[in-house]
């Protein structure tokens, strides 16, 4: 669905070139929800802007729906964004002179979709994000969370291939943050829309299926989260539990056997002592037993 190949990006300040991204490579599958995690200045927003076609990389290729957006001109990119890309901003970026419904409809206006179709779609999406009664209000009449819901509805109206969310909860309190993330997760699950969420908060990122961690322009880790592991982790845990039980049984059996052996040996020792013969100590015998179990795979890092 989305493929980032050898993306390098630098910019010039004065006579010096500053490198922001170094040979970034990764791919995101259709319907996946991934996080770009990194601290301020790590290059995550630059990467997002490159993927959204708002900037051109110094080197490399970005493929969305099998099209290299790096090679596209401005108007072609605008058309591509109109059809394939949705955008959720940290500060919502709604147009204050338009009503909530008109804001949601806006991307379709640029596609020359008829007003009746636009209205129907916008109202359905507002229902989906939980604010059907706010359609005729203006953004200034809404709370931050509600405005972000409008922004989400707007990003979905063109049924894009991928939605880029730049710190979507950055301006929200923790309760609203949870609600918004919950809406995004739900939309990803029900609509199978690909989401790429830029965040600097691990607790937001860990709710996505995969996390790409950036540091100083390098993609340092790519890890699956508990969310992605999901069922796989549960299956593995069950299997491990079963193995542990078996091992425990074996250990217990061995321990029992060892005790019996010990007792028998003690008897024998006593007999040998009596007979003047020296044998192996029980501690040494214990060290040779397979008592150490390997740690379980998966789970949280």
């Amino acid at each position: 669905m989305l493929r980032v190949e050898d993306i390098t990006h630098s910019f010039k300040t004065g006579n010096e070139w500053t490198s922001v991204l170094h040979k970034i490579n990764f791919a995101v599958k259709q319907g996946e929800m991934v996080a770009l995690l990194g601290s301020s200045g790590s290059g995550k927003s630059t990467l997002l802007n490159l993927m959204a076609g708002l900037m051109k990389p110094t080197e490399g290729h970005i493929y969305i729906a099998d099209q290299d957006i790096v090679k596209m001109g401005e108007n072609k990119l605008a058309e591509f964004r109109r059809k394939h890309i949705g955008f959720i901003f940290q500060a919502y970026e709604l147009i204050t002179s338009l009503t909530v419904r008109e804001n949601v409809e806006l991307p379709l206006v640029f596609q020359s979709v008829s007003p009746s179709v636009r209205k129907k779609k916008a109202l359905a999406l507002l229902e989906q994000v939980g604010i059907p009664d706010k359609a005729d209000l203006f953004p200034s009449q809404l709370s931050g969370g509600q405005q972000q819901r409008v922004s989400i509805a707007r990003s979905l109206i063109t049924e894009p291939s991928v939605i880029f969310a730049d710190e979507p909860t950055g301006n929200l309190d923790s309760k609203t943050e949870e609600e918004i993330i919950s809406i995004l997760l739900n939309l990803n699950r029900t609509m199978k829309t690909t989401f790429i969420v830029v965040t600097h908060e691990y607790k937001v990122a860990e709710q996505m299926q995969r996390i790409f961690t950036l540091r100083d322009g390098f993609l340092i880790t790519e890890q699956q989260t508990a969310a992605k592991a999901g069922q796989q982790a549960a299956v593995e845990t069950e299997a491990q539990a079963a193995a542990e039980t078996e091992e425990q049984t074996a250990v217990e059996a061995e321990q029992k056997a060892a005790v019996e052996t010990e007792q028998k040996a003690a008897v024998e020792t006593e007999e040998q002592t009596a007979a003047g013969t020296e044998e192996q100590t029980p501690a040494e015998a214990e060290q040779q037993t397979p008592a150490e179990a390997e740690p379980a795979e998966g789970g949280k890092p």
Binding site: A52, N75, A78, E79, R81, I85, F87, F110, Q111
Partner: peptide, 14 residues
Amino acid sequence: RQIGIMKVLGANMG
């Protein structure tokens, strides 16, 4: 800013 938003949402130069 409004123009920028519109461009991000897919409005072309024309």
